[in-house]
């Protein structure tokens, strides 16, 4: 496991995302309220570029005809077929088994690195 530094902390504001390359891999680094996260720039469904997906919240599971908007800024929706993924874990919101590959991010001395 090596940490690859991809950007400096101040280069990305909360709510922003950036495409970075680590070797052959294209990753998207997201800065949420509580820190940095990295996902593969490749949707597990048909391979859409995750960077083009909108980030927002979602309606959490609720009673019938109730809506509970939650997790604002933590969910990315694939730009093609609209599958929703949790940016923090890469997991899709409809199945434990479906996920975008996610990578641990380490921030040290203002440098954002990805552990691969």
């Amino acid at each position: 496991m090596t940490v690859h530094v991809v950007l400096r902390e101040e280069e990305l504001a909360v709510g922003e995302a950036r495409l970075v390359a680590v070797g052959e891999r294209e990753l998207v680094v997201y800065r949420l309220q509580d820190g940095f996260y990295a996902l593969n720039n490749y949707c597990p469904h048909q391979g859409a570029p995750m960077l083009a997906g909108r980030v927002g919240g979602t309606n959490a599971p609720s009673d019938v005809y109730c809506y509970r908007y939650d997790r604002d800024g933590e969910i990315v929706r694939c730009p093609w077929h609209g599958w929703e993924f949790d940016i923090k874990s890469g997991r899709s919101l409809f199945s434990e088994r479906v996920r975008v590959r996610s990578y641990p991010v380490v921030v040290e001395d203002g440098k954002v690195g990805i552990r691969i």
């Binding site: 859409a48 083009a52 909108r54 929706r77 730009p79 093609w80």
Partner: peptide, 10 residues
């Protein structure tokens, strides 16, 4: 109405 929209975002 769809939350995904009709167009591919990219």
């Amino acid at each position: 109405w769809s939350p995904v929209g009709v167009m591919r975002k990219d």
